[in-house]
Amino acid sequence: TEDEKKIQELLKRANGDVSKAEKLAQSQGNEELARRLREYANK
């Protein structure tokens, strides 16, 4: 999905570090994506 692409892109930029990727999403003002990242990471 589009969200998964965004999540994978963020994870790439954060070198696979979920908490960093989450902070990136939040810094972009994207709380929804940050929440999805957390769920994605907890799979």
Rank of each mutant, 00 (worst) to 15 (best):
K43N: 13
G29E: 04
G29I: 03
E9W: 02
E4N: 09
A34S: 05
G16R: 02
S27P: 01
T1Q: 11
N30V: 03
R13F: 10
L33E: 02
N42Q: 13
Q26M: 14
D3N: 10
N30C: 14
Q28L: 13
N42W: 05
E9M: 04
K43Y: 10
E31G: 08
L24H: 05
Q26E: 10
G29D: 04
G29W: 04
Q8G: 05
E32N: 07
K43R: 09
Y40Q: 08
A21W: 01
Q8N: 10
A41N: 08
I7L: 14
I7T: 02
A34I: 08
E39S: 03
R35I: 07
Q28D: 13
V18F: 14
K43Q: 14
E31A: 09
D17C: 11
R36A: 12
D3C: 15
A14T: 11
G29P: 02
L10H: 04
G16N: 06
E4P: 04
E31F: 14
E39T: 01
E39W: 02
A25Y: 00
K6T: 12
L10F: 09
A14R: 00
K12E: 14
R35G: 05
R35Q: 10
R38P: 04
Q26F: 09
D3A: 09
R13N: 11
A41W: 14
R38F: 03
E9G: 04
S27I: 12
Q26N: 06
Q8C: 15
N15V: 04
Q26A: 11
T1Y: 12
N15S: 07
E22V: 15
I7Y: 05
L37Q: 00
N15E: 09
Q28Y: 08
E32L: 06
S19I: 12
E4M: 13
A41G: 09
E31H: 14
E32T: 06
R35E: 07
T1E: 12
R35K: 13
K6C: 15
R35M: 08
K23P: 00
N42A: 12
R13E: 15
D17Q: 03
E22D: 02
N30D: 15
S27C: 13
E4H: 10
S19H: 12
R13Q: 15
T1M: 12
E9H: 03
E39R: 01
Q28R: 04
E32H: 07
K43M: 14
Q8T: 10
K23T: 07
K23A: 13
R36F: 04
L33P: 00
Y40A: 07
E31K: 06
G16K: 01
A14W: 05
R36T: 05
E9N: 05
K6L: 14
E22Q: 07
Q28N: 07
S27Y: 07
A25L: 10
K12S: 10
E9A: 05
E4S: 08
E4Q: 09
L11C: 14
A25D: 01
A21C: 07
E4G: 06
A25I: 04
S27A: 13
K12A: 14
E39D: 11
K5A: 11
E32V: 05
R13S: 12
K6M: 15
N30P: 01
A41M: 14
A41D: 07
R35V: 07
A21Q: 00
I7E: 01
R35P: 01
E39M: 03
E4C: 15
I7R: 00
S19M: 10
A14P: 00
E2P: 10
N30R: 06
E31L: 12
N42T: 12
Y40V: 09
S19N: 12
S27D: 14
S27Q: 14
E32I: 06
T1W: 14
Y40K: 06
N42S: 13
K12N: 12
L10P: 00
K6S: 11
Y40E: 07
I7D: 01
E31I: 11
A14K: 00
D3H: 09
A21N: 00
I7Q: 01
L10M: 07
L37W: 00
Y40P: 04
R36Q: 12
R36H: 07
D3K: 05
V18P: 07
R35A: 11
D3T: 12
S27M: 14
K43V: 12
K12H: 11
S27F: 08
E32D: 11
K12I: 10
L11Q: 02
D3Y: 15
T1D: 14
D3E: 14
N15G: 14
A25N: 00
R35L: 08
K6A: 14
I7G: 00
D17W: 04
Q28M: 15
E2A: 11
K6E: 15
E2D: 13
N15Y: 07
R38E: 05
K43F: 11
N30A: 05
K43C: 11
N30L: 15
N15D: 11
L33Y: 03
N30T: 04
K12Y: 06
D17M: 03
G29F: 06
R13I: 14
Y40W: 11
E22N: 02
E39H: 03
E39G: 01
R38C: 11
Q8R: 14
K12G: 09
R36K: 15
L11E: 02
R38M: 05
E2S: 11
K12F: 06
K6D: 14
A21R: 01
I7N: 01
D17H: 04
K5H: 09
D17G: 01
S19E: 13
A41F: 13
L10K: 02
L37N: 00
K5C: 15
N42I: 09
E4F: 13
L10N: 02
G29Q: 04
Q26W: 07
E9I: 04
T1N: 12
D17K: 02
Q26V: 13
L33C: 05
L24W: 08
N15A: 09
K23F: 09
E39K: 03
R36W: 04
L10W: 05
G29A: 03
R36S: 06
N15P: 00
K43S: 13
L24E: 07
E22L: 12
Y40I: 13
L10Q: 02
A25P: 00
R13W: 15
G29H: 05
R35D: 05
V18L: 09
K20T: 09
S19A: 12
E4R: 09
Q26Y: 08
V18D: 01
